[in-house]
Amino acid sequence: MGQSRSPLDVAGLELLATRGWRGGDEAPLGEWLLRAGGGFTGRANSALVVGDPGMPLPDAVDAVTRWYTDRGLRPCAMLPGRQSRAADAAFAAAGWERDEDVLVLTGPLTPAPADGVPVDLSPEPGDAWLAGYRHRGRPLPPTARAVLVNADDVVFASVRLDPPPAPLAAVARGVVTDGWLGVAAVTVEERYRRQGLATAVMAALQRWGAGHGAHWVYLQVSASNAPARALYRQAGLIEHHRYHYRYAPA
């Protein structure tokens, strides 16, 4: 689905994206990658299921369960694309619960000129940025900052339209890895919505990415998030593949 237009296949893109959003603790399980980051986000706290785990799938499910249980985390697996179907069936057979689809969108980097919205770019997320990013609608846990800054070439975009103590109007995070710009954490404060701010921070991140050697852009969006999907479609991003999480029985 759109994959021929991207220079990376599903496994290649997911492994690249892993380097842009890292937990602090990683270990291989064959070609799978186990990741833990204090419980903040599924992406940093799940087994990335690509390739061969080097053992029968039921044994791999057990190994994933033990690794996360040892770290006090609910075991979680991230299952991208058609290549993970057999593993998905093994997790399902063990009673793991399936979450909704997430779309991975990609496109060539197309930096637009600045449109007058004041977008600030910083190498660190300040307190106002951290307060402005709502992950799944919730405030960030204390472990979030360590995950957010744990990348080689990362930037934090923010838009302030009213002076403090008013919140930031919009925030987003960008990271460049091997010529790819990863966009995440795009959040617009409710009172500032429908003013083009998400488009403005996306454009600012693309300009930043172009200056850091990026030629392609990727991001993830929940299948149920219709407004964001429409925004990214207008930005020329198309579906590369989908993934979903499975969680061990509570």
Rank of each mutant, 00 (worst) to 15 (best):
G2Y: 07
Q3H: 12
S6W: 06
D9W: 10
D9V: 07
V10E: 13
A11S: 13
L15A: 10
L16K: 02
E26T: 06
P28V: 01
W32S: 00
R35F: 06
N45Q: 13
L48M: 06
V50A: 06
P53N: 03
P58A: 07
D59A: 15
A60P: 08
A60C: 09
V61Y: 07
L73F: 03
R74F: 04
C76W: 02
C76R: 12
C76D: 03
L79N: 05
Q83G: 14
S84D: 00
R85V: 14
R85K: 12
A87N: 05
A90G: 10
A90C: 09
F91A: 00
A92H: 04
A94G: 06
A94W: 09
A94N: 02
W96R: 13
T110M: 13
P111D: 09
A112S: 13
A114R: 14
D115F: 06
D115P: 01
D127A: 14
A128T: 11
R134T: 10
L140Q: 07
P141Q: 01
A144D: 02
V149H: 12
V154W: 02
F156M: 08
S158G: 09
P164Y: 02
P165F: 09
P165H: 05
P167I: 10
P167W: 06
P167T: 09
P167R: 08
L168Q: 03
T177F: 11
W180H: 08
V186G: 00
E190M: 08
E190A: 14
T199I: 07
T199R: 14
A204H: 02
Q206Y: 03
R207C: 05
R207V: 07
W208A: 11
G211N: 12
H215E: 15
Q220D: 11
V221H: 04
S222P: 07
A223F: 09
S224M: 12
R229E: 04
Y232W: 12
G236T: 10
H241L: 08
R242D: 00
P249K: 05
P249H: 13
